[in-house]
Amino acid sequence: MKKLFIIAYSLLVASFASAQNMREIWLSMPDSLVPYLNNSLRTEVADYVDMKDMKPEVNNLLDDTTRINKLTNDYMLVRLTNSSVLEMRKLNDNRIATVWTWFGPAPESTLRMFDSEWNELPVSSTFEPTIVRPDSMTVERFEELKSLLEPRLIELRLSPEDNSVTASYSLSLLSREEKKAVASILRQRKYSLD
């Protein structure tokens, strides 16, 4: 009887541990991932989300404002500073996707994957752009525009609704006319994270 109770208790604890919601994932995140937003500040800003009369924001350790813009059971959007954003999505009970975006002359993002214990996992996608030549464009013009695609910055956005990420590309070194021309061959792309 004692063994049966211990096994049942262990299964119950394991099921609660694996069924974390986004708030719990946010609070369990190691301080080393966002050193200027320790656990105390993350708890404080998360508590403000539930309070109707409080803005869900705190002053972080950089003396900047951190604000939770959206928090659901499996998705979170946080403006970490005036120049950076963090998106997190619970893909399943064992995987978390994070997208860190920094805003300089153009947005640039990094996708990182973690298990439920915050051990980093490999990311398999390279997010190469999809380039399509319109029927009305000559091959020479297409090749000329393709040559303008380097260097490029990538902006990633996690979907609040499903386990996907959308990639768009910025070519901050190009003139306005060149950007417009390149946009005619460059396609935004959605990738599945399953």
Rank of each mutant, 00 (worst) to 15 (best):
S83N: 14
V139G: 02
I96T: 04
R23G: 02
R67H: 09
I131M: 09
A46D: 02
L156D: 01
E117F: 11
M113K: 13
T98C: 13
R112A: 03
L153G: 00
I68H: 04
R133T: 03
I7P: 00
M29S: 02
T72N: 12
S175A: 05
L174N: 06
S15A: 14
A106N: 06
A97L: 10
D31I: 11
T65N: 14
S83V: 08
M22G: 04
P151S: 10
S109T: 03
I154V: 08
L186V: 12
L77H: 09
L41N: 02
L186Y: 08
S84I: 05
L11C: 09
S84C: 12
S18M: 12
Y75C: 10
K70W: 11
A181C: 05
L145Q: 09
K146Q: 12
S109F: 01
T66F: 01
E120K: 13
M113D: 02
F103Q: 08
I154Q: 00
S124Q: 14
W100F: 14
L156R: 00
E108Y: 12
L174Q: 14
L27K: 01
E44C: 04
M76Q: 07
V99S: 05
S40M: 11
S164M: 02
W26P: 01
Y36W: 15
L62Q: 14
R67Q: 13
T130C: 02
V13H: 04
T65A: 07
M1S: 10
D47L: 04
S109L: 01
N92R: 00
T66S: 15
G104C: 06
D74R: 08
S116T: 10
A181E: 14
S40P: 03
D50R: 13
L71C: 05
M137R: 11
K52A: 15
N59I: 09
P56R: 07
T81A: 03
T130G: 05
S15D: 11
P129W: 01
K70G: 06
S28C: 04
T130N: 10
S84L: 07
V34M: 11
K55C: 04
V132K: 13
R152M: 09
I7D: 01
E87K: 06
R133E: 07
I7H: 01
E128H: 04
I185W: 03
L37Q: 03
E120P: 05
S32L: 15
S10V: 15
R133K: 15
A19I: 06
T43I: 08
D50A: 15
R42V: 05
S125D: 06
T81D: 06
E144K: 09
L41R: 05
K2N: 12
E87H: 06
K90M: 09
L71P: 00
E177K: 05
T98N: 09
T101I: 07
D31P: 08
D47H: 11
T98M: 15
E108S: 10
K190I: 12
W102D: 08
L158F: 13
V165T: 11
L61Q: 15
A183D: 15
M51A: 14
Y75R: 10
N119L: 03
S116R: 02
S168L: 09
R152C: 03
